[in-house]
Design a protein around this nucleic acid. Structure first.
Lengths: 121, 121
DNA sequence: CTGCATGCAAATCGTTTGCAGTTGA
DNA sequence: TCAACTGCAAACGATTTGCATGCAG
């Protein structure tokens, strides 16, 4: 656990948004002015593999990261791209219920709401 | 409606898969050997804006395209990336049901199943 | 005619990687 | 000690764009 890795994780945990790698880089740079994007990406990768943060492959071209590792869903603003949490009970057994509709072996699902955030609406 | 635009649309409609832009380029190139990626991308864009095809922003880094413009869901193979349709009744009024859980104005949702395709499982 | 569309190549954007020097367990 | 990590810069893959020419309406 290097210092830069710790700062990345702490900063992500201290924020309720779902920043992109670049946004994390901008935040972390305030404390570690010499840190590089490569380090940010590499650490986000190892931390997500260790289960200490979540990598969110939401609509849009950039990955986003979440310090909350519990399973939950997200809403995305179609205008500004902002991503918030939306908490409701997980669609349980969705895969089991739909298994007969597909010849794929269903293992998971991802559900993303979209709309307008308070600022954009 | 130029010839290249027509060919792109026809080829996409003639296929049940959900090809990436590059896959469409490869297919179309058989009929139009001089076509460029730029033309493919520009036409996929205008055709989707006209509602003649669907642009699918599914997990993974590449956009995929669907000649079926009716609302339906997709399954994605976590091993090979293949994308198939999965038909079941749309989650009706999901946005309305969840509206009280978010301060976003909910307008839509996207749901993607994941698993292993017949070849990979 | 003329404005939108093309082919080509270069540019852009997010992300990944090779490398040589540095550091934490 | 020494494998893992860093900063830097170059490489990468997907997509977009500028430009001069060509074609559809």
């Amino acid at each position: 656990m290097t210092y830069q890795r710790k700062v990345i994780l702490d900063e992500l945990r201290g924020v309720t948004s779902h920043p992109t790698a670049d946004e994390i880089y901008q935040i972390v740079k305030k404390k570690l002015s010499k840190i590089s994007m490569g380090t940010v990406y590499r650490n986000l990768e190892v931390l997500s593999k260790k289960g200490l943060l979540q990598k969110i492959d939401i609509s849009g071209k950039q990955m986003r990261f979440d310090g909350n590792v519990n399973k939950h869903y997200h809403v995305r603003c179609i205008k500004c791209g902002r991503v918030d949490d939306i908490f409701f009970k997980p669609l349980e057994d969705l895969e089991k219920k739909l298994q007969d509709k597909s010849d794929f072996l269903l293992l998971g699902h991802s559900l993303e709401l979209s709309g307008l955030c308070p600022e954009c609406k």
